[in-house]
Computed example of a mutant assay.
Amino acid sequence: MKRLLIACETIRNEVELALKNRAVEIETIWMANTLHDSPDRLRDALQAEINKSEAAYDEILFAYGNCGNGLLGLKSEKAILVIPKYGDCIEILLSETDNLERIRTTTYFLTQGWLNGEKTLDIEYEYNLKKYGERRAKMIMNIMFKHYKNLMLIDTGAFNVEAALPRVKDIGELIGLDVVISQGSISPLEKLVSGQWDEKFCVIPPGHPTDYDDFLGISLSKP
């Protein structure tokens, strides 16, 4: 079976480690992390890649959770689609963490991939600082994060935590959050790339669009 992997740049380190750990080589298309800003743009971009690639592949794998419901409605006429049955990348990387939904109510999450993004918290603060001045920039950040308590760096084993920690601490100080480090897991990604698709994966046959029923068991926001 010929396989294609479509993956988010945000978790590139983790996906590449999963491929290495399982000694798997798959042609991979890396999608911009800015697509997360709009589920509709994400869906359209992923569908465009499916349309371009489906004739050449039997199976198209997605290193994505159903971010903002952005993977609902995807369809291939010729290839099987395989999608991890998780709400987003955080659920993938913290799949072995208990009480994740409770933790999410007070925690903002980071990995090296998020720190490499174009719209990180410190970059956003600097933008507001230049545009509005220090007082208003801090007020904006305080409003944005008033319900949060912790800034969690997820140790996925795919990057140097000690090297990333000084910047994370600076961000925590900037927005008034306590920095914590939590052990993550790339097990779902390893299963994805090695074809070990259990009940935590949506396996969609050709001609069928993904829908809400495919993602039963995870948090979805129905319109």
Results as ranks from 00 to 15, higher is better:
K2L: 05
L4E: 10
L5C: 04
R12C: 11
N13Y: 14
E14R: 01
A18T: 10
N21D: 15
R22A: 07
I26R: 04
I26E: 09
T28M: 12
T28S: 15
I29G: 12
W30D: 09
A32M: 06
N33S: 15
L35E: 07
P39R: 00
P39E: 00
D44H: 04
A45T: 08
Q47R: 00
A48G: 06
Y57S: 09
L61T: 03
G68Y: 04
L74E: 04
L74R: 12
K75R: 15
I80T: 15
I83N: 01
C89M: 08
I92P: 00
S95W: 02
T97S: 11
D98K: 15
L100R: 11
R102F: 06
R102W: 04
I103G: 07
R104W: 00
F109R: 02
G113V: 09
W114V: 07
I123T: 00
E124C: 08
N128T: 01
N128Q: 06
L129F: 08
L129G: 02
K131E: 13
G133L: 05
R135N: 11
R135A: 14
R135D: 15
A137I: 02
I143A: 04
M144Q: 09
K149G: 12
T156I: 07
L165D: 04
L165V: 01
D170L: 03
I171V: 14
I175N: 11
L177E: 01
Q183G: 09
G184V: 06
S187C: 09
S187P: 05
L189F: 13
L189G: 12
L189C: 12
L192R: 06
V193T: 03
S194Y: 02
D198W: 09
D198A: 12
V203A: 07
P205A: 14
P205E: 13
T210I: 07
D214G: 07
L216A: 15
I218E: 10
